[in-house]
Nucleic acid binder design. Structure first.
Lengths: 207, 207
DNA sequence: GTCTATACAACGATAGAC
DNA sequence: GTCTATCGTTGTATAGAC
């Protein structure tokens, strides 16, 4: 039977799913330590203990593999943040939970963050990523924009453009994380407090 | 004599400086249209009408060429912003001028911005750029952090960590620009107004 | 001093044997 | 399902023409 190279996990055999999982794990390791350009198919194959062509059997191309890896990482990331946000009923508390979850997850998963910055931030121009997933069909910050809109409707927040403000808050988070990646001694907990205050004073109504 | 591949423009002959300039211009064109990975030395050489080896005569390696190109673009960018900021004497006005200059320059120079996002944002992990220039020795947002510190000393701004806040504002700008690059119909002028208000209400003292 | 020509290892990708 | 063999292309290095 022809190999299935799609992303549908239900349609794969047990061994194939295990192999794919193993290869993706090796890819995360290599990209997060050596960076994307230095991560060749040969290196991935060697790390997985198989041949270069065997990797390309399971994933039709290097792009296919790296995009699968990216989606694998992003799925966990967004699941974590969504779960933390949905605990809160108050709009303002939900926004704070969003900011803190974005930071705390990345703080606890440096390895994954490296993969994201190497691949997704990389792709802001839209030249690299060929198959945009469900995360970016509405934009990476649509979820945050929705939270902001909900806060405005509840009368808790000022009047501003939710899309631009979501981009601003999201970019602020991204940049703080990026700086922390390059400077590990940077106090990320203190930065999270600052960022929360920064965000709230920018969006809350002044009475 | 051995070819000069350094960045010192004074030590180059007229023809060499012209060739280097031409090659850099072709590199900007190709990277901004096709993206970095799709920009090969052969493509650059063909665009410049010379051989691949001739390119490598003027620039010792592809990395050398792309870093020179990036620096070429960044120099103009930062010169523009610095000039706009230094016109203002009031700390708050200087910060506003900074934000607006960052946006207006990038709005007027899409081609250059593409090169920056393809190369510099790319490099947040620090795995790619080998020779950090004067711009990033103190961090990309040090200039903004200094402006914020000056505003605090003048009593105009609240008490906050200038480094984290500079990262937040800078990231906000970056993200808005990135979104505009992908969605050209996004109203960047309106976004600049929003971003200015967002920034001011986050840093100004509440009396 | 400026360049063309050529050779090289490593890359991503394909075809076909087992 | 995994392999070997091979392809075209990439970045790089060297030799030598003018």
């Amino acid at each position: 039977m022809a190999p299935r190279r799609g992303a549908d996990p239900e349609a794969l055999t047990f061994t194939e799913r295990a192999r794919r999982q193993q290869i993706v794990e090796c890819t995360i390791d290599l990209i997060s330590t050596r960076g994307y350009p230095a991560t060749s198919l040969s290196a991935i194959a060697e790390a997985a203990g198989i041949s270069k062509a065997a990797v390309l059997y399971h994933f039709s191309s290097k792009d296919n593999l790296t995009e699968t890896t990216l989606r694998h990482v992003l799925d966990r990331f967004f699941a974590y943040v969504t779960q933390r946000v949905e605990r809160e009923s108050e709009p303002c508390a939900a926004i704070v939970a969003y900011v803190r979850a974005m930071i705390s997850y990345q703080q606890a998963n440096r390895r994954h963050v490296r993969v994201i910055t190497e691949m997704l931030l990389d792709d802001k121009g839209g030249t690299r990523l060929k198959t945009p997933g469900s995360h970016d069909t509405h934009g990476r910050w649509q979820a945050l924009a929705d939270l902001l809109a909900a806060g405005q409707e509840a009368g808790r927040l000022r009047a501003f453009d939710t899309r631009t403000t979501a981009l601003a808050i999201g970019g602020a988070i991204d940049n703080v994380i990026s700086h922390w990646l390059v400077h590990p001694d940077y106090d990320l907990d203190a930065a999270a407090d600052e960022l929360e205050a920064f965000t709230l004073s920018a969006i809350e109504r002044r009475d």
